[in-house]
Simulated assay, not measured.
Amino acid sequence: MKKFNELDKKMRVFETAADYCVLPGLFMVARLDGRSFTRLTKEVCQFEAPFDERFRDLMVATTESLMTCGFRVLYAYTESDEISLLFSLEDQLFGRKLRKYNSTLAAEASAKFSLLIGDVATFDCRISQLPSVELVVDYFRWRNEDAVRNALSAYCYWTLRKDCLDEQAATKRLLGLSVSQKNELLFQYGINFNDVPDWQKRGIGLYWEVYEKPAVNPINGEDVIAQRRRIKKDYDLPMKDEYSEFVKNIFK
């Protein structure tokens, strides 16, 4: 019989043949997406459309959990059923192996969201490897603007659905409409898209902030002011160039 060490060495080759590690100096940004969340949110949980604060809070709590489960996350962003995470260049967890990041992050998000919602929920994950701060900014600018586009379309679609149009008719009504035409459609129903809450249009950002709190010096017992870190949840993110500057400031 072959000894265990011989078998282990032989079989590890097959398990690790597809291992790719992110090179030093490259930024990693993970994007997680909910799988079959339309069924989960509309049929199982029956959340309000197009936006529901209960679902928003579940996504924020899941994002916060990903920031505190062992990874060095500088910035996180969530919109709809997706989460993006920017890792520190110094993050060396799992030797920066992509398969470990993808599998662990998807598992952590799936487990946390399932516990919160009380039903089975799963996420997939993919990693972007970005060589510059400018590309990191472009990535988050892309997701920020995607949130705006999706929110406008969602408001139009569900406004028509609530006006008794079925799925096919509502989709057909919106086909080919420009941004200005969609805004006009909403205005005809008394909805000014500019007045929609920022978190619905722009997503939500989470990042670390330093704060001060009273403490006691354990050596001499004197009262002191200690600095601690906590996660700030930003529900009023800026847009366009202002958002680009906002993301750049994460690196300072």
Score class of each variant (00 low, 15 high):
residue 35 R to S: 02
residue 125 C to I: 06
residue 236 D to Q: 07
residue 189 Y to N: 00
residue 50 P to N: 11
residue 248 K to V: 05
residue 28 M to D: 01
residue 172 K to F: 06
residue 46 Q to R: 10
residue 177 L to P: 02
residue 158 W to M: 08
residue 150 N to F: 14
residue 20 Y to L: 08
residue 142 W to Y: 12
residue 9 K to D: 14
residue 234 D to M: 05
residue 243 Y to T: 03
residue 174 L to T: 07
residue 138 D to K: 11
residue 214 P to A: 10
residue 1 M to F: 15
residue 38 T to Y: 09
residue 21 C to G: 11
residue 232 K to D: 15
residue 53 E to I: 05
residue 246 F to V: 09
residue 206 L to I: 10
residue 233 K to M: 10
residue 182 K to L: 07
residue 115 L to H: 13
residue 107 A to V: 15
residue 245 E to H: 11
residue 58 L to V: 11
residue 204 I to P: 09
residue 230 R to E: 10
residue 118 G to Q: 06
residue 17 A to E: 12
residue 60 V to P: 06
residue 180 S to D: 12
residue 181 Q to C: 00
residue 17 A to G: 11
residue 242 E to A: 14
residue 119 D to P: 05
residue 84 S to E: 08
residue 193 F to P: 01
residue 176 G to P: 01
residue 130 L to W: 10
residue 212 E to K: 14
residue 227 Q to M: 03
residue 80 S to D: 08
residue 205 G to R: 00
residue 93 L to F: 10
residue 99 R to S: 03
residue 8 D to V: 10
residue 70 G to D: 13
residue 211 Y to Q: 10
residue 162 K to C: 12
residue 160 L to K: 02
residue 32 L to D: 02
residue 210 V to K: 13
residue 192 N to H: 14
residue 14 F to N: 11
residue 213 K to T: 15
residue 62 T to P: 05
residue 234 D to G: 05
residue 151 A to D: 04
residue 76 A to Y: 09
residue 61 A to E: 07
residue 235 Y to A: 00
residue 152 L to R: 00
residue 112 K to I: 04
residue 133 V to R: 02
residue 24 P to R: 15
residue 65 S to P: 02
residue 94 F to S: 06
residue 148 V to N: 00
residue 27 F to Y: 12
residue 6 E to P: 06
residue 173 R to S: 03
residue 236 D to V: 07
residue 139 Y to L: 03
residue 104 T to N: 06
residue 75 Y to M: 02
residue 156 C to P: 00
residue 31 R to T: 09
residue 203 G to M: 04
residue 34 G to H: 12
residue 128 S to L: 04
residue 139 Y to H: 14
residue 157 Y to L: 10
residue 23 L to I: 00
residue 221 G to P: 08
residue 145 E to Q: 13
residue 70 G to P: 10
residue 243 Y to Q: 01
residue 138 D to G: 04
residue 26 L to W: 09
residue 138 D to M: 08
residue 109 A to F: 15
residue 226 A to E: 08
residue 193 F to T: 00
residue 217 N to C: 15
residue 87 F to K: 07
residue 208 W to P: 05
residue 15 E to Q: 14
residue 36 S to E: 12
residue 193 F to A: 04
residue 30 A to C: 12
residue 172 K to V: 01
residue 167 E to K: 07
residue 88 S to I: 00
residue 85 L to S: 01
residue 118 G to P: 09
residue 207 Y to P: 06
residue 68 T to I: 11
residue 19 D to Q: 04
residue 213 K to F: 10
residue 134 E to T: 06
residue 61 A to S: 13
residue 107 A to L: 15
residue 111 A to E: 14
residue 146 D to A: 12
residue 134 E to P: 01
residue 63 T to C: 10
residue 135 L to C: 04
